[in-house]
């Protein structure tokens, strides 16, 4: 047991020291702490491969593929949202969105994933519409998908800054 604990402690301290040192070195040196943003300020809303019929069904299996901060889809109230860009501006921190990328985040959105729960502001509810891709289990054609992506990109880039300011005020 002592050997196992020694090995675990060694791994633990090695990883923690490495991450803290690297974090300290890269802090403020252009290392982007906001994972949703890229250099141009806009981001492809979705990276998808259409099926043989040229369509895409927005089911949970498809949503689950987009489970990264760089490609984050989420289901909220049976609607699919592309929240990749919201990650960088979310006042509650990136982690609270990243955790639910590729999953159903209905409950988390309704409760702010807090215990006891807290509801999002009506402003946030409205803002969420800007990230709307389609309904869950809806089948989109390539053209519909492109159109939705363009809408998300244009509306989110103009609203990105107001999200943080207004959410903080409402909190």
């Amino acid at each position: 047991m002592k050997k196992a604990i020694t090995a675990s402690l060694f791994i633990f301290w090695a990883v923690v020291t490495a991450i803290l040192t690297a974090g300290l070195v890269f802090y403020g040196k252009g290392q982007n702490a906001s994972p949703g943003a890229n250099s141009t300020g806009t981001q492809p809303a979705a990276s998808v491969s259409l099926g043989p019929t040229g369509t895409l069904t927005l089911n949970m299996a498809e949503v689950a593929k987009h489970n990264k901060a760089s490609d984050c889809w989420m289901v909220i109230n049976n609607k699919v949202y592309v929240l990749t860009q919201a990650i960088s501006t979310h006042p509650g921190g990136a982690a609270s969105i990243i955790t639910f990328c590729g999953q159903d985040g209905t409950q988390a959105f309704a409760t702010k994933d807090l215990n006891p729960s807290r509801a999002h502001s009506s402003f946030a509810d409205n803002l969420l519409n800007n990230y709307y891709l389609g309904d869950l289990n809806q089948t989109l054609t390539g053209q519909q998908l492109n159109s939705a992506q363009t809408n998300i990109n244009s509306s989110t880039s103009s609203n990105a800054n107001s999200l943080g300011e207004n959410e903080r005020e409402n909190d």
Binding site: K2, L9, G23, S70
Partner: peptide, 29 residues
């Protein structure tokens, strides 16, 4: 001992997700 080892690996496994995004974010963890 077993509980301690598992709890040591708990943050290590959770932090890995943040490393490709931002090392500063991972350090903050």
């Amino acid at each position: 001992g077993s509980a301690f080892i598992l709890l040591l690996f708990h943050p290590l496994l959770l932090v890995i997700k943040y490393i490709p995004l931002s090392i500063a974010l991972a350090a903050q963890f």
